[in-house]
Design a protein around this nucleic acid. Structure first.
Length: 769
DNA sequence: GACCTGCTGCGGCATG
């Protein structure tokens, strides 16, 4: 070990490095050590998951603390997951074994003794979640100054998971309050593997001077094996309904697919059909083909299969278990891991992954973040995700070390053409999205973070927290700590006062004669609940139990009746009892079953992704990573797009309606729908197009002209939104304020107006010719 | 048309 950086470290830290048998420091560690030890400013470290980021930050931090011990927490590590904190706790304890720097942890599963010990004699490093830091303000407000008086560093792990999220704004607010309460001036260190524009992360760490944040990035690109395989759902060969010019293309498509499926077919279909209890799932479909493909490729190594919906993962796991059973194999390598499974079930799966035995885990975003699960051979993705960031993050789980190969396969499923197929369906939009996301990922584009949102729900959360912490504050003091010096700088004084009056109206807060604001009965009750610590919303759930074991959870509105079967954790269960009082569903092992529904709020697709779909449709260039079926479907979609006119003009004029493909992301699309609603035009939408009912070409052009000239404000449009509350405390905020935030956060007037002007230009040229 | 994350303090009792 000859590095200059190494010589800067404390002797005890050097000792710990020798004990671990490290021969060299990683490049990012050698670069980080002097920057931290010599006392420069904030820092952002971006490198692969296994690139040694944690050590890069903590080797010099521990050295600094060891040279200057204080009776205050000197370094905070903030992690998004309890499991991650437990992982890192062990690593840091090893690093600190030869120096006198205590390591503490504080989260919901940490013991009361651990927490008391930290409170009684604070010092060294504390690993904590944002919610537990919040609990410090609520329960130990008076002790904050003592516990954190000499705080020097705040390390935020998986920083990308906090950028522009409710949880991230919450965290920023807590850090600002901590600085205000203690007068300390900590240096911030952000760690992340997936950063789009580093400037957003810089602004998160230092909103007033983002340019001062030093960026250290890991080197070394990965070799990548990437492929997209296309499948059709509910295959049908009835083509009599299609326009004549298209039949040839589509026959090619289906011929191609039939051969393709026959070649890949695994004898799963006969097994399922022989099962008398299984009348609901006897049909062979595209999922069986996908299962068979996976089965052949996942016999060895550690693999992850990501999905977008828990339900689809459960169904696929069930098919894979059945396929293993029918193959006569005693070893079933398939496991399920998602947020609705119990901690015990998930920990068991994590242990199998860590053991290094061959295992393939079907998971949602629960395994996206850096829990150490060892090396992943291949990542698969069932259906394209919604964002490039998600595709990138998931791909990064494979081939995590330099020199390794990252392998990823996306299984894309579209509806098979049938008599009632819409034009949108015939463009195979899910395959298009998969290709668009991949193209953007290869071009190193990621969705930008939206730092301009108001986050009024989280502001409400922090107002309540401040009043709980202090017992009462003036509105000026609240404004100063949360807005002027805090995380809600986009909120104006007028909006802030509006939020305060809203809270008064619903009895969350009240004003006492001195002018101070205090919690009113509703506010007292909300903040006394354990559920309060998190700033994000959560729904009521029932626990699913089999004998003494907790299997997982179901949304309370979606609990099936007694006697019905469900699939959970990739296994089949029958509901034998439901206890509403203790919110528990009791189950026994069963043979039948269908996967339960889990309902979420839906996501957001960026303009750039939809634009890329349009570019791919317009182009003739070959996409090398598509399988035969995907190539055939893309060829067919391109021909369909060209001949139907949705590329050039973007619209199709019918007898009494117009179908328009505006090629906009979620916000712009919703803006166009609201424009029509404001004008009293009835519309129907699918994922790519809006159809204007009972509208002739002339009327539609007038409507476009109105959108194009931007006469209606976004606020006017937001007033017509059907759903207006999205986050935890939105219900407490006046409608007019919600309209104002929704107009900023959920609509895109500029893109909608711009595309309306362009389309109107095309429409006029057609009218003239 | 989706996913994920998080979480007290205290009284009472048994044990060493």
């Amino acid at each position: 070990m000859s590095s200059q950086a190494f010589s800067l470290l404390h002797r005890g830290v050097q000792e710990a490095i020798f004990k671990r048998g490290w021969k060299e420091l990683h490049a990012i560690q050698a670069e980080t050590i002097p920057w931290i030890i010599e006392g420069h400013g904030h820092l952002l470290i971006s490198a692969h998951t296994a690139g040694g980021k944690t050590e890069a930050a903590f080797l010099p931090i521990i050295s600094t603390l060891a040279n200057n011990p204080r009776s205050s927490v000197q370094a905070l590590y903030i992690g998004p997951l309890v499991a991650l904190i437990n992982d890192q706790f062990e690593r840091l304890e090893t690093l600190c074994s030869d120096v006198d720097v205590p390591v503490h942890r504080w989260h919901g599963s940490a013991s009361a003794t651990e927490k008391r010990k930290l409170r009684d004699s604070p010092g060294g490093i504390l690993l904590i979640t944002p919610e537990s830091l919040e609990s410090n303000f609520i329960n130990y407000g008076k002790h904050l100054r003592r516990i954190y008086a000499d705080l020097k560093f705040i390390v935020i792990d998986e920083l990308h998971s906090f950028l522009s999220s409710v949880r991230g704004v919450h965290l920023r607010s807590l850090i600002a309050r901590l600085v205000a309460a203690t007068g300390c001036n900590p240096r911030l260190v952000g760690l992340s593997a997936t950063l789009g524009d580093p400037n957003h992360a810089r602004s998160f760490l230092a909103p007033d001077a983002p340019e001062t944040v030093k960026l250290i990035t890991g080197k070394g690109d990965l070799t990548l094996q990437f492929g997209i395989k296309a499948y059709l759902h509910n295959e049908s060969k009835d083509l009599g309904y299609l326009p004549r010019w298209h039949i040839g293309d589509l026959y090619n498509t289906l011929e191609g697919l039939t051969t393709f499926q026959a070649k890949e077919k695994y004898p799963l279909h006969s097994v399922l059909q022989n099962d008398p209890d299984d009348s609901q799932s006897v049909t062979t479909d595209e999922l069986d083909d996908i299962a068979s493909h996976i089965l052949h490729r996942c016999k060895d190594h550690t693999n992850l299969i990501f999905g977008n919906a828990k339900q689809s993962l459960e169904v696929l796991a069930d098919r894979l278990h059945a396929a293993v059973k029918s193959s006569g194999s005693l070893q079933d390598p398939f496991h399920v891991h998602h947020g609705s499974l119990s901690k015990e079930v998930r920990e068991e799966t994590e242990a199998i992954l860590k053991s290094g035995k061959p295992a393939t885990v079907l998971c949602s975003s629960t395994l996206e973040m850096g829990i150490d699960i060892g090396s992943v051979w291949r990542v698969m993705q069932l259906d394209a995700p919604w964002t490039v960031a998600s595709l990138r993050q998931r791909m990064g789980r494979s081939g995590r070390r330099e020199g390794q190969t990252a392998r990823m396969c996306v299984y894309s499923r579209d509806d098979s053409p049938h008599k009632k197929s819409s034009l949108t369906d015939l463009l195979f939009p899910k395959l298009l999205r998969a290709i668009a996301l991949a193209e953007l990922m290869f071009s190193r584009w990621l969705e930008p973070h939206d730092g301009d949102r108001f986050h009024l729900s989280t502001l409400v959360h922090q107002i309540l927290s401040c009043l709980r912490e202090t017992g009462g504050m003036s509105s000026e003091a609240l404004f100063s700590i949360l807005i002027n010096r805090g995380a809600f700088r986009k909120v104006s004084k007028r909006m802030f006062l509006g939020v305060l009056s809203s809270l008064g109206e619903c009895h969350f807060i009240e004003q006492i004669p001195t002018g101070e604001l205090i919690l009113a009965p509703e506010g007292e009750s909300v903040t006394a609940n354990r559920d309060f610590y998190a700033a994000f919303a959560s729904s009521e759930e029932f626990i699913v139990r089999h004998d003494e074991n907790e299997i997982g959870k179901l949304q309370s509105s979606l609990v099936p009746p007694i006697g019905e079967d469900i699939i959970l954790g990739g296994r089949r269960w029958r509901v034998i009892d439901v206890h509403s009082t203790c919110k528990t569903v009791f189950v026994s092992v069963s043979e039948g079953g269908k996967a339960p529904l889990f309902r979420g709020p839906g996501g957001e697709i960026h303009n750039r992704v939809v634009d890329e779909m349009h570019i791919i449709l317009s182009s003739d260039s070959e996409i090398p990573y598509l399988d035969g079926a995907a190539q055939t479907l893309l060829k067919s979609a391109r021909a369909m797009a060209r001949q139907s006119g949705v590329l050039s003009a973007g619209f199709i004029v019918r007898d009494n309606s117009i179908q328009w493909f505006p090629w906009l992301g979620t916000r712009g699309f919703l803006t166009l729908e609201l424009q029509a609603r404001c004008s009293g035009i009835a519309t129907e939408s699918d994922i790519l197009s809006i159809t204007y009912r009972n509208t002739n070409f002339q009327q539609w052009q007038e409507h476009l002209s109105l959108i194009g000239c931007g006469e209606r404000t976004a606020l006017e449009l937001a007033k017509h939104m059907k759903i207006k509350t999205f986050e935890k405390f939105d219900e407490t905020i006046r409608e007019e304020l919600l309209d104002e935030t929704n107009s900023r956060d959920r609509l895109d007037l500029a893109s909608a107006s711009s595309i309306a002007r362009k389309t109107l230009f095309h429409a006029k040229s057609i009218s003239h010719s």
